[in-house]
Simulated assay, not measured.
Amino acid sequence: MTGRSLSRATYVALPWILPVAIVLWWDLTVRVGWIPPAILPLPEEVLSAAVRLIETGELQENLIASTGRAATGFLIGGGTALLLALLCGLFPIWGNVLNPSLQTLRSVP
């Protein structure tokens, strides 16, 4: 910039440029047939489906179920990691036995 500060309207509008461009590109690619609607529906179809899911309560129900599954997985994984870390830290022989396998697993996302 040349030292001028941005106007408030420009400052508010700037973060919206990329998301709006992505949605417009998405809409264009489906409408001209570059991407079949069966693969990627039009943005308004996605929005109407989201509204329907919210109105019926199905979205909230599924979000609660997914959050529960994620929390359960986190607790199982965290609990297992804590137990293995305690085992390796308190008993050096277990550290020697388990460390190579645990180091291999660490690189797995």
Rank of each mutant, 00 (worst) to 15 (best):
L83M: 14
R69K: 13
L90H: 01
F74M: 10
F91I: 14
F74N: 00
A70G: 00
G77M: 06
I64V: 15
L75C: 06
A65F: 12
G68P: 07
G77K: 04
L87P: 01
I76T: 10
A71N: 03
A81W: 13
T80A: 15
A71E: 05
S66A: 15
T67S: 11
F74Q: 02
G79H: 10
L84Q: 08
L75T: 01
T72F: 15
A70V: 12
I76A: 10
C88F: 03
F91C: 00
S66V: 08
T72K: 03
A70I: 15
S66F: 11
L83C: 07
R69W: 14
I64S: 05
F74E: 00
A71R: 10
G77I: 02
G68F: 07
A81D: 07
F91P: 00
L83R: 06
G79S: 10
L83I: 13
S66D: 08
G77Q: 03
G78W: 05
F74S: 00
L83E: 01
G77V: 01
L90Q: 08
T72C: 04
L82A: 15
A65P: 01
L63R: 10
L63T: 03
G78R: 06
I76Q: 06
A81Y: 10
G79I: 05
G73I: 02
T72L: 15
L84R: 06
P92I: 01
L84P: 05
S66N: 08
L87H: 02
L87W: 13
L86F: 13
G73F: 11
L86G: 12
G73K: 03
I76F: 09
L82I: 12
L63F: 05
G79V: 08
A85K: 09
A71Q: 06
L83Y: 03
L86H: 00
L86P: 02
G78C: 04
G89C: 06
A65G: 01
L87T: 14
G78N: 04
C88H: 03
L84H: 05
G89N: 12
F74K: 01
F74L: 13
T67F: 13
L87Q: 09
L75Y: 09
A81E: 02
L83T: 12
T67G: 14
F91H: 12
I76M: 09
A81K: 07
L90S: 07
L82D: 04
F91R: 07
G77A: 13
T72R: 14
L90T: 04
R69V: 08
L82M: 14
P92Y: 05
P92G: 11
L86I: 04
L84F: 15
G77F: 07
F74A: 12
A65W: 07
